[in-house]
Simulated assay, not measured.
Amino acid sequence: MTKKVLPLTIGLLAISFLRAQEISPSPSASATPARAVRISFVPPPLEGKVSLGVYNEWGQLVRVLHQEAEFDEFTIGADALSTKWDGKDDYDYDLPAGKYSARGFLVAPMKIEQISQTDEAVFIDPAPPVRIKLVANPLENNERPTIDLVAGYDDDSTYIQTLDGLPLVTVSKLDKSSEVAVVLDLERDKSLNMLVRTAVTREFRITGITKMMAFDCGQFELK
């Protein structure tokens, strides 16, 4: 009796093992290792907030890394501030390996005031970029740089941004209107005027916009 039971038991175990292999899912491929690039810079000698972008080798903005950030949002080293970039764009997609660069602006506090509001429908014409000459950054030994600014907005707010899309200064909060239009103009006294049209049309005056310093973090390799 024992001799008959033993082969039968071994056979059943073998069948169970083969079935388990068929049912068990194969191991999944290991996840792609996280890519992290350390970006550091010496902040310009100016009180304010930092907006920092990552650019591809063609000079296109691919990631807004920091928008109006305080210094304590960075890692503070002995002689520089640093941050990390995960190699993704603004839509959370991995970017291809290659050469990238980072640069940004330190923006001093400025005065933003609403000067009018109307319930009447106001047609807003597209306007050319506003060209502004900034304060020179003494750490980079360059002349006063010139940048082009335009109005921008997202789901939550309107802001002044560079022509390539880096937000610099929040101007107003937005309601949940389905239609938004914004435009930026330069006044004779060097202040900026922004019209924001949602359910109502509001007008804002921004003064002190030239109190910004540009800085460059240099080029780096994404692997």
Rank of each mutant, 00 (worst) to 15 (best):
E47C: 07
F123N: 04
S16L: 15
F17L: 15
G11S: 11
S116Y: 08
T118H: 13
A80W: 06
G11N: 09
V54M: 02
P27G: 02
P43L: 04
L12E: 09
A69K: 03
A29M: 08
W58N: 11
S116I: 07
P7G: 04
G77K: 06
P96N: 13
L8T: 07
S28C: 05
P126F: 14
F123A: 05
P43Y: 11
S51P: 00
Q21K: 14
D119H: 10
K99C: 06
V54T: 02
D90L: 06
D92N: 11
L46I: 13
G98Y: 12
P33Q: 05
A31T: 07
L81H: 03
T9K: 15
V37D: 01
S16A: 15
E47F: 13
A34K: 09
V107R: 01
K88I: 03
D89G: 02
I112K: 04
P44N: 04
G77F: 07
A14S: 13
T32W: 03
A29E: 04
P109G: 06
S16F: 15
K111H: 13
P7S: 09
Y91I: 06
D90S: 05
M110P: 00
L52G: 00
Y100M: 03
P109H: 12
D72Q: 10
E68D: 09
L12Q: 11
L95G: 01
L65Q: 01
D72P: 01
I15S: 11
D125C: 08
I10N: 08
A34Y: 09
R19N: 11
I39P: 00
S82M: 10
L6M: 10
A121D: 08
K49R: 14
Q60T: 10
R19W: 15
A31Q: 10
A97E: 13
S82W: 11
E47R: 14
K84R: 09
S16E: 15
D86A: 07
R38P: 01
L18T: 12
F123G: 01
A20V: 10
E68Q: 14
A97S: 15
K4C: 03
P43A: 04
Y93C: 03
G98R: 14
P25W: 07
L12S: 11
S30H: 09
A78I: 09
T118C: 09
D86M: 08
Y55L: 02
V37G: 01
E73C: 08
L13T: 12
V42K: 05
P43H: 12
R35K: 10
P27E: 02
K88A: 03
L6R: 15
I39M: 03
S101V: 03
F71E: 10
D119R: 06
V5K: 15
G53N: 03
Y55H: 07
L46N: 04
Q114C: 09
S51K: 03
E68N: 12
E73A: 15
S101N: 11
S101L: 05
L6P: 00
S51I: 03
S16Q: 13
E120S: 13
P109A: 10
P109M: 13
